[in-house]
Amino acid sequence: MSDYLLEAKLRAENRDLHRLTKDSAVVLQKMLESFLPRFPDFTDHTIMHSMDVLEYCNLLLGEKQIERLTAAECYVLIMSCYLHDIGMGINQKNYEELSEKIDFGDYFETHSRKDTQTIIRVFHNEYSGFFICKYAELFDIPCEEMVFAIVQMSRGHRKTDLLDENAYHDLMTKDGIIRTAFLSAIIRLADEIDVGVDRNSELLFDSSKVQDIKGIEAFGTHESIRRVEVREDAIVLYVKPKAPEYLELVSNLVKKIQETLDYCRKVVSLRSDFRITQTSVKTIKIID
């Protein structure tokens, strides 16, 4: 069993850091719901998604590797699971303020959709990073190194180059080392699994109200994957296609998770002495 191992390990090693995560969780329940008015569609970024990502981190790491983590690593990993999508729920004032700091590259020259909703969705990992920087005091994050780690791990759940040693280097704190690249790879893979196979959308949204094709396809793909199992050697998706055409969409999703798995395995092996034991993403078709 890997349930709540990270939380249990942190509580056993450092009760003060554990209490900080509990205080943050109480506040974040409400905060993470604030994305819903701006994004009334079918992607879950509530505390339920945070809890799921945390659970996948527990499963991917496994008991023996969690035992090797420092208290600082347990703390920043739990906080990053809670905070990685906080950028999806920023208000207009913070959107305008934080947009000044983000490097959008050539996005505005190369993309036609430039509305606020799209910008936040595409760059939400960057908004998360700057939001955490701005409000680090709110979450009582104990030191600058931990703020930096949580920012980088939250940014790194999407897109960023985890092999960049300047952006993702090891940090020393009084509560132990933080191996930022390794932890970022774990959270990126955990997030990819949960976004792909999200079950919470069925609880949060009414699928009959989906209008656009992309939303219908995404929701149908979620509904076609009935269960996920993280085994020692593989990530297994149990598939019952909602309709035959969803098989191809599920297949595309499997490829996407496999790509992320391959990349994260590479990061973990090159940047730490930990490992991701899972090597492949498999599907098992459920037959009535």
């Binding site: 900080l20 205080d23 943050s24 109480v26 979450f139």
Partner: peptide, 9 residues
């Protein structure tokens, strides 16, 4: 002057 998540709880 300031309230953090611990205070909010």
């Amino acid at each position: 002057e300031y309230i953090s998540s611990a205070g909010l709880r």
